[in-house]
């Protein structure tokens, strides 16, 4: 195992997302590559980090519960008829563009 100084492995751990997605500047890229060549624990972190992303991407898709859309139609109809309070505050009705642009 290499004699990493106090912050080397931590710094590598911090950079793994960008290392993986190819967005590291050349200097940092060389630093991470060089470190992974001589530090098995960091290779372990990186490989298992990659594995987590693979697991996430393979996670079972969401299954639609039976009758969901039908239930929603009813509930929304009920909700609409029960309520005359006017627009609610927290839904940010006017979003990121100037009025009149859409």
């Amino acid at each position: 195992m290499s004699d990493c100084n106090a912050s080397t492995c931590k710094r590598v751990a911090d950079l793994l997302l960008q290392f993986r997605d190819g967005s590291l500047p050349a200097e940092d890229l060389a630093f991470v590559r060089e470190h992974l060549h001589r530090c098995p624990p960091c290779v372990g972190i990186f490989d298992s980090y990659q594995e987590v992303i693979d697991v996430l991407q393979r996670l079972q898709p969401v299954r639609m519960p039976e009758g969901l859309m039908e239930r929603m139609r009813h509930k929304v109809a009920e909700g609409a008829s029960m309520d005359d309070e006017g627009p609610c505050e927290d839904a940010e009705p006017c979003s990121d563009e100037e009025p009149g642009e859409a």
């Binding site: 195992m1 990493c4 972190i45 490989d47 298992s48 990659q50």
Partner: peptide, 12 residues
């Protein structure tokens, strides 16, 4: 010594 500890590479 500032190495990550308890790392198991479960990917393989």
């Amino acid at each position: 010594s500032n190495h990550p500890t308890g790392v198991h590479d479960f990917s393989r």
